[in-house]
Each structure stands twice: as C-alpha cells, then as structure tokens.
Design a protein around this nucleic acid. Sequence first.
DNA 1: GCAGGGGGAGAACGTACGTTCTCCGTGGTG
DNA 2: CACCACGGAGAACGTACGTTCTCCCCCTGC
Lengths: 181, 181
Amino acid sequence: METVEARVLDAAERLFYGRGLQAVGMDAIRAASGVSLKRLYQVFSSKDSLVEAYLRRRDHRWRAALERFAEQRPAGRERILAVFDWLHQWFQEPDFRGCAFVNSYGELGAGHPGVAEAARSHKDAFRGYLATLVAGAGAAEALADQLVLLAEGAITTAAISGSPEPALHAREAARALLAAG
Amino acid sequence: METVEARVLDAAERLFYGRGLQAVGMDAIRAASGVSLKRLYQVFSSKDSLVEAYLRRRDHRWRAALERFAEQRPAGRERILAVFDWLHQWFQEPDFRGCAFVNSYGELGAGHPGVAEAARSHKDAFRGYLATLVAGAGAAEALADQLVLLAEGAITTAAISGSPEPALHAREAARALLAAG
DNA sequence: GCAGGGGGAGAACGTACGTTCTCCGTGGTG
DNA sequence: CACCACGGAGAACGTACGTTCTCCCCCTGC
C-alpha cells in the first residue's frame, strides 16, 4: 500500500546517493521504482524537483535517526560522544558513501541554488543539534563549532578511505576537547 | 612560450574545479584554452586522462603551497597551527569551492577508479605531512589523525557555508588538542 | 616556386538524457 | 454492453557531449 511518491523516492535515494545526481537518469529511476515515466512526471514535475525532494527527505531521516540514537544515552558528555558512535555505525553500512549533501553540493554547487540551499540548511540543522547537546553538557558554545568540524571531517575521511576508523579518532578528539573545556 | 599541455591544464583546472567534472565539456576546455580539439586529444587521449592529470597537478601544487607556507614558521606547534592559517587564507580566495578531491570523489566516486585513487592518495599525502609536523612537535602520533579531521571538516564546512570562519574554529580546536596532549 | 605535413575550425557521428507524446489495454460506471 | 478516464510501455524529440573526421591553410625544406 506504499504510495507512488515513496517508491520513487526510495529508488531515487538509492541511486542518487550511490552513483551521484548526474550519473542517474530518470529512466534508471523509472526502472528501479517500477513507476512509469508518465506517472513519475505527474508526481515530480522535473528531475530537479525530485532531487530536492530526495535531499529534503534524507535530511529529515538522517537527523531523526541520529537524534533517536543519541537520546538513548544520558544527557551531557555521554550524549555528545554518542554522536560519534552513531557515525561509526553509519560508516560501516555497506552502501555508505559519505554525506549526501556534501556530494551533491560538490557535484552541482554553484549553478544549482536548490541543492546548495539544501546542503546549507542540513549543515545548519546539524550544527544546531550539536549546540543543544553542548548546552546540555554545560560546555562552552564554541565547542559546537569544533565538534561540527570533527564530525564533518570524519564523514569525508571515512568515505574516501573506506574505513570507519575516523569516527573513533573524532570521538577521541571530542573527548579531549570536552575534558579540556 | 607556455606549453600546450600547461594551457589546457590551466583551463581544465579553472573549469573542473569551478563547475564540476561532468558539467564541463571538452568543448568548453577548448574554448577556454584556445587549443583546438585535435591538438587537445593529441596531448590527452580522453577526458578521463585529462581529469586525472588535472587532479595530479592540483595535488602537487596544493601540497607544495601548504608546505611553503608552513615552513616559514618555526617547527613545532607553531608550524602545525600555520596549517590552519593557510586554510583560512585559502577559504577567502574568491573561487574557493571546497576540496577538489572531495568534490570529484563525491561526483564520480565508485565507478571511476582513477578519481577515487587520486582522492585517496591526496588525503594520504596530506595526513603524512601532518604526521611529520606532529612528530616535529613531539606530540603523540594519534594527533595527526585528529588534525586531519579538523582540517577536512573545515574545508567542507567553509565551502558549504561560504565563510572562512571554520578555519579559525579548527585552529582553536587544534591548539586545545596540542595543549591537552 | 612547390610538395608535404602539421595544425585550426568546425562538421559529423554515435550515444545518452530530460521531457513529452502516442498508442493501447483495463477497469470502473451508466 | 458501451463509454471513458487513467495508466503503462516505449517511441519520439531536442539537446548536449565525447570523440573523430574533413577540409583548408600555412609553414617548412628543397
């Protein structure tokens, strides 16, 4: 009873995230979703609008998954370190290929304002979440910016190196910064 | 008296870095370099080989510029912090658009082994350089991995946010980690 | 002056893609 | 049964691109 929109977005996410935006044609999404081109264009008026819907849904899901995971740990330092444990788990998923927003921004960047805006707002929201965790731990607000860099760096480095280890290095650095602050 | 190869690589770097790999056609490189398609294909047998030459040259130049800058500071902690000062300068260049290797890897990633390998070896070399700086400062080797994450995160965050500030946050975090270690 | 070869401009070719259109079958409604 | 609105399959259309080819000019060596 899944809706057509959901089936299309599932296929789009698998393909766009796995192979890049420009490398995936609408026909590949039709084949992967089983939704005819005609119907597909009734639901998403263009490839651009499908790309933006993909990024929007991924942003919500990614942050919800992170928050669900972190909130199982006690607020404070524990919960901050949980972010890096979650990254470590994510990096080990077989289809992990880095940050969808960084990849999309790097591919289209300028010249595609919708994608650039999606990347900016995703990163802003992530920083905002870290800031609430930092406040909850009673640490200096500047720490949030530093944690963002560690997480961001870990995601990119894990993608390129193909190893989940950067999450552990980032976790250790975060621990040291928390202890120093 | 500039060689044809250099003119082509200059144009390729400007266009590939500024707009992405797939968004730039060979004809745009011909127009920007003033080298005819025929000559262009005599020097680079395919677009793929031009892309790889672009990444190779950029890797060398980028690391050489960083090392030239850092070596003006005294070895030790000063020289490690200089890395982040150099990033801060880079982020303010008007055509800064993040890391060419991260962008290329995100765009093509799997399915293009030459690009993936170029990204891996660039990041390895950068980590290697930081490791020598860390050793020169007498700090624990694990610090190199943490500094990589800060630098990597700063590059990506600066690109998406459009602000050079992440370099300062990364510098401050590096200072704290150095003091703690 | 002249033959020949290298190079430039751009056409040509094959392919891929975003988007739309045509044609047909089907299932619900009187 | 007759009608029709919808949806599927895939052809069609316009464009863009990687790569090669054609044609012509100019420069060199004799």
